[in-house]
Simulated assay, not measured.
Amino acid sequence: MAAAVVIREYDPATDRAGTEAVDRECEVGPAGGMSLHADLLGDPLARVRHSPAYLMLVAEAAGGQIVGLIRGTVKSVATAGATTSSPASASVGYILGLRVSPSHRRMGVALRLVRRLEQWFERTGAAYAYMATDKSNEPSLRLFTGRCGYSKFRTPSLLVHPVHAHRLRGPRRAAVHRLAPRDAERLYRARLARVEFFPADIGAVLGNPLSLGTFVSIVDDYEWRGVEAFLASPPASWAVASLWDCGGAFRLEVRGASRARRAAAAASRALDARAKWMRVPSVPDFFRPFVAWFVYGLGGGGDDGSTRAAEALFVAFVNMARGRAAAVAVEVAACDPLRRRIPHWRSLSCEEDLWCMKRLGSGGDVEGWDWARSAPGQSIFVDPREV
Rank of each mutant, 00 (worst) to 15 (best):
F144C: 12
Y222M: 03
Y150P: 08
H164L: 08
Y222G: 03
T214L: 01
P171A: 11
E138F: 10
F198D: 04
D221H: 00
H161R: 11
I202Q: 11
L141K: 09
A200M: 04
D201G: 05
R172W: 10
R154F: 10
V205T: 11
F144H: 15
N208M: 00
R147L: 10
K135Y: 12
T145D: 10
T133A: 14
R172T: 11
L158I: 14
K152P: 08
K152H: 09
H177K: 04
H177S: 03
T155S: 05
A184N: 07
D201W: 08
H166K: 10
T214Q: 03
G149N: 06
R191P: 00
A175F: 11
G146Q: 13
F197W: 11
S211N: 10
I218C: 02
L158H: 11
E223C: 02
R172V: 12
I218S: 01
L143I: 08
M131A: 15
A165E: 07
T155M: 03
V216M: 00
P139F: 12
R189S: 11
V163T: 03
K135S: 14
S217V: 05
Y188F: 15
N137M: 07
L187G: 04
S157L: 05
Y188V: 12
V195K: 02
N208E: 01
S157F: 06
D221Q: 00
E185K: 02
N137H: 11
L159K: 13
H164M: 08
T145A: 15
R147D: 04
H164K: 10
R194N: 07
F197V: 04
R169V: 14
R186P: 04
R186W: 06
V163I: 07
P181C: 04
G207W: 02
A132P: 02
V176Q: 02
A132F: 13
F197P: 00
R169A: 15
V219L: 14
E185C: 10
R178G: 01
D134L: 15
G146C: 13
H164R: 14
A174Y: 02
R154T: 06
S157C: 13
V216N: 03
E196A: 07
A180H: 06
P162Q: 07
D220P: 06
A132H: 14
L212R: 13
T145V: 14
R154N: 04
A190Y: 02
S217I: 03
P139R: 12
L206E: 05
V160M: 06
V176I: 14
V195L: 06
G146W: 10
G203C: 09
W224H: 02
H161L: 13
D134W: 13
R178T: 06
I202P: 07
S211Y: 00
P171M: 12
A174D: 05
A200Q: 10
S217F: 01
L206M: 05
S217T: 09
A132I: 13
P181T: 07
Y188R: 08
E185Y: 01
T133E: 10
T155I: 01
A190S: 11
R169Q: 14
P209S: 02
D183G: 14
L159S: 10
S151A: 15
G213C: 00
F144P: 08
